[in-house]
């Protein structure tokens, strides 16, 4: 892989000035500036590489073999569940979906199906698709490092509205991770890239997409855990160790 580089600033005077209309930090374009009557310098990036065959393919094979051994061991000792014959006249209580859908089922407990079953999954998928096309991601700047006051105002308005919305629908399970995320973001807003502790510096450097995705991961984990372990007959609260 080669890497075009701008000659150092000491290479003056400039024989011409090049301008890029778009914001290069938002949509990166690789531009090589040739300031003197020389050919463009190409600096080879000498990163060590391996042949895919056999080095990488053998590692892949070993990884898959280890996985297969683990799964075979699990399958030898734990049987897949099988309940009674399907019976339309008897609903099991509680009727639970597989674990990866229990976050969704937990939401279905609070919201009408068109919201929890259609709107939320559609929005999640759209948000996931949009991520790489979202300028804020490419920018990779800390959320509050630029336009601090304006962004803080928007942040508080959105957070408070969303928390009130969750409170109105009584969705305490989703509210707790949201509040923790909001608190962390508020804490990040007090930090700067020059803060003394490493943790605060790293918080200050996190872009918006990081916060949204981490909030999503947090909600996914909490809702799935609650739906899997803490819900019993009639979708009421139970403790998993008291069954």
């Amino acid at each position: 892989m080669t890497n075009e580089k701008t000659p150092d600033s000491k290479a003056s005077p400039k024989s011409f000035v090049a301008a890029v209309a778009s914001d290069a930090r938002k949509s990166p374009v690789r531009v090589a500036f040739v300031t003197r009557r020389t050919s463009a310098q190409v600096q080879a990036y000498d990163e060590p590489k391996l042949q895919s065959f056999p080095e990488v393919l053998f590692r892949v094979a070993i990884a898959i073999e280890v996985l297969a051994i683990i799964l075979v061991l699990i399958s030898l000792f734990f049987n897949a569940p099988l309940e009674g014959l399907a019976d339309a006249s008897h609903t099991p209580n509680p009727a639970k979906a597989p674990w990866y859908f229990l976050g969704l089922q937990e939401l279905l407990h609070y919201f009408p199906p068109v919201v929890a079953g259609v709107l939320v999954p559609t929005l999640v998928v759209l948000a996931l698709i949009v991520i790489p096309y979202f300028n804020i991601n490419v920018e990779a700047d800390g959320l509050f490092t630029k336009d601090r006051d304006k962004r803080l105002r928007i942040f508080w308005a959105v957070s408070v509205t969303f928390c009130v919305f969750l409170l109105v629908f009584d969705v305490i399970v989703a509210l707790v991770p949201t509040l923790i995320t909001v608190a962390l973001m508020a804490y990040a807003a007090t930090a700067t890239p020059k803060s003394s502790s490493k943790f605060r510096r790293s918080l200050a450097a996190k872009p918006l997409s990081f916060w949204i995705m981490s909030w999503f991961l947090f909600e996914l984990a909490v809702l799935t855990t609650v739906g899997t372990l803490f819900r019993g007959p009639g979708w009421s609260w139970v403790l998993p160790w008291r069954s």
Binding site: P81, L82, E83, G84, L85, A86, D87, A88, H90, T91, P92, A95, K96, A97, P98, Y100, F101, Q105, L108, P112, P113, V114, G117, V118
Partner: peptide, 27 residues
């Protein structure tokens, strides 16, 4: 994984798919 869930035709399968297909009718 969702379509595979129905295939054993047990109680779990039947009601998971009942719930899932009714989500579709909320479109």
């Amino acid at each position: 994984s969702y379509t595979g869930y129905l295939l054993p035709w047990d109680q779990l399968a039947f009601w998971a798919i009942t719930v899932g297909s009714n989500i579709a009718s909320a479109v």
